[in-house]
Design a protein around this nucleic acid. Structure first.
Length: 257
DNA sequence: ATGCCTCAGCTCCTGAGA
């Protein structure tokens, strides 16, 4: 396994042709998808099988929904966070080749102080408690997805205007740092990157054209995998499509293992 | 301050996203 990627597609029903196109141009070994917005019975298994991918999905009507596509079979598939009761389909994890791979759609949180923000905070704590045990069992681990959190001002197009707004609050960033403290590393920042690099741009107000975005889609790798990371990039190409997702894929490349 | 756009759904408006 050498390349893994994550992409919030904002409806797999709408974006399936773009995902298939992207995979033919970028034949990654694992692709984690978020915001399928479909139930499992609608999941396009055949389309992925026909281009050589195994597929595991955890769907939900209207909102959320995640999937893992992989060249090698996914083993020991787990849905959501064990020990954290959640009515939403946000996490799918599996062993692929010699690593534990987790694809996650973190809660948005809507607004600091709201019920949804409190849910985001408790979800983040639930994730951390599970991950601590998971890292003990599986030191070679990748956690990737739509985190809905920026690390710092470098991930925000206007840090002054967006200070303390959702995705940029100290509470969210504290939880993200607490995840890192378990022994995880932001693959993207292991390398020099262009300033103003983002993974999401609002559909409104020509935000993509003006590069008014946020970096909220991340790939975290464990201590054991960190030395193997060769590159990490955000692929803005699909954001230029007709009817694009608002998110761009993030890709990490590991040394052959 | 609000909507700016996009998507799903008990669809011609609303809720949610980020």
């Amino acid at each position: 396994m050498t390349k893994l990627a994550t992409w919030n597609v904002n409806s797999l029903t709408v974006r399936l042709p773009q995902v298939l196109d992207w995979l033919s141009a970028n034949p990654v070994d694992v692709l984690a998808l978020q915001e399928l917005k479909m139930t499992d019975d609608k999941f396009p298994f055949d389309a992925f099988h026909s281009i050589g991918y195994h597929a595991q999905c955890f769907g939900q009507k209207t909102y959320n929904g995640v999937a893992l596509l992989s060249r090698s079979p996914a083993r020991h598939v787990v849905r959501n966070i064990p020990g954290f009761a959640d009515g939403m389909a946000r996490v799918i994890s599996a062993e692929v080749d010699e690593a534990r791979v987790i694809g996650a759609y973190f809660p948005n949180g809507q607004e600091p102080g709201s019920d949804k923000f409190e849910y985001k905070m408790s979800w983040l704590k639930g994730l951390r408690i599970w991950l601590r045990a998971e890292l003990d069992k599986c030191p070679r681990l990748v956690l990737m997805g739509d985190y809905n959190i920026t690390f710092d001002d470098a991930d925000v197009w206007d840090p002054v205007a967006l200070k303390d707004t959702i995705h940029c609050t100290e509470e969210e960033r504290y939880q993200l740092r607490a995840l890192m403290a378990l022994g995880l590393h932001d693959a993207y920042r292991l390398f020099p990157q262009a300033p103003k690099s983002y993974s999401w741009w609002d559909y409104r107000d020509f935000a993509f054209r003006r590069n008014r975005g946020l970096r909220i889609d991340h790939i975290l790798v464990s201590d054991a995998l960190k030395p193997l990371v060769k590159s990490c990039l955000i692929d803005k190409t699909p954001r230029k499509n007709e009817r694009p997702s608002d998110h761009a894929p993030v890709v990490v490349e590991l040394l052959q293992t």
